[in-house]
Design a protein around this nucleic acid. Structure first.
Lengths: 193, 193
DNA sequence: CGATTCTTTGAAAACAGTCAATCTGTGTGG
DNA sequence: CCACACAGATTGACTGTTTTCAAAGAATCG
């Protein structure tokens, strides 16, 4: 529940008990069953979401009905649709639970108030976004410069726990290849070793 | 020179004359001839860089000697290597000028001081990073979900001025395809219209 | 004009996608 | 406890796209 979030915050910034109480009072925890939605395409995203347990994915669905996974988030990661949050426009994405999960939700207005009152909290957020941006850049670099099987190897190397918890078709989608191609890549990789 | 940067700032946030003078005193302007480097692989990036004139690219070079362009930046855009800046480690990237360019450089320490003293400046920076992150996410989404010719069409639609100012091989690299493929895509597109 | 850089074209090979069938493991209800 | 259903993973044959390599054709700049 909230404890995981508290531990996360304590590991990042110093907070008084009152501040903790305030943040807790701004938070809502939500349990998600497997396959349950946190965000559906067309809805406006106006929260900040911390994954305290489980694993969720962010994806779009194109005209042909294919899913395209742009992000995963597990315990101690943040998730959400920043584009919709910033623009106020309906989201193009869906977020749902790959496993049973628990999410700590903070309304954007309250979140902004917390950022304003607690500079360390604001700095933490900025640091997170900066690192997210760097991670995106690196993913872009991978996507234009390495072959499909290197992408998979990099993914497994970087996020070993994802590789075991996430169904293969979603990993394939995340990497921008089909599940069949990924299956063949893995087959070859096993032979080599 | 600095005027472009001043106009940019005035369009974003209110600044007093003293603040402008201070920011100016922290800034160094640098002229780049075509092909001249702003950053070379292996160097540590410790600045913030605003492009006041011209056009630069950020790219890596792999073992085979191929270049991979991860970003362009033209007038009124920021450039640099945030990964190196955050980590303090040598950069994996090069940045050089596609055209003769002018860059306003601010040392990271001075930049941080400005952010601390002028909250609006800090907020502006955070807003820029948030939008950069959203743009990265969208580029990732494109890279995993649309075909090569749609990627090119999206690129031209989104950045028409890039398409005319940047050599084709660099655009191809940015899109993650070969220059030959991009050439053929354009050929087909012309026929269709 | 000559040299360099950028772009285009062609043919063959490598690669990834599609469609359809099969296999595997998990969990549920009889 | 077994049989079945279901979701996920694999495999094969085929198709389509992209890369590679090599050569030639524009365009630009001094």
């Amino acid at each position: 529940m909230y404890d995981v979030f508290k531990a996360y915050l304590d590991g990042k910034i110093p907070l008084t008990n009152e501040q903790h109480d305030w943040i807790r009072s701004c938070s809502v925890t939500k349990k998600l069953r497997k396959n349950q939605y946190l965000l559906q395409e067309g809805d406006v995203w106006q929260k900040h979401a911390f994954v305290s347990k489980g694993l969720v994915r962010t994806y779009s669905i194109d005209e042909k009905g294919s899913e395209h996974v742009i992000a995963f988030a597990m315990e101690n990661w943040w998730t959400g649709d920043r584009e919709s949050l910033l623009s106020g426009k309906p989201s193009r994405f869906n977020i749902d639970a790959i496993e049973g999960s628990e999410i700590v939700l903070i309304d954007d207005q309250k979140f902004s108030a917390i950022c304003k009152e607690i500079p360390a909290f604001n700095d933490m957020q900025n640091a997170i976004i900066q690192r997210s941006f760097v991670a995106s850049q690196n993913r872009i670099h991978d996507s234009i410069s390495v072959s499909a099987d290197e992408k998979y190897k990099n993914f497994v190397g970087k996020y070993p726990s994802f590789a075991t918890r996430i169904p293969l078709n979603m990993i394939a989608s995340y990497l921008g290849i089909t599940r069949e191609t990924l299956s063949r890549i893995r087959h070859k990789a096993v032979k080599k070793s």
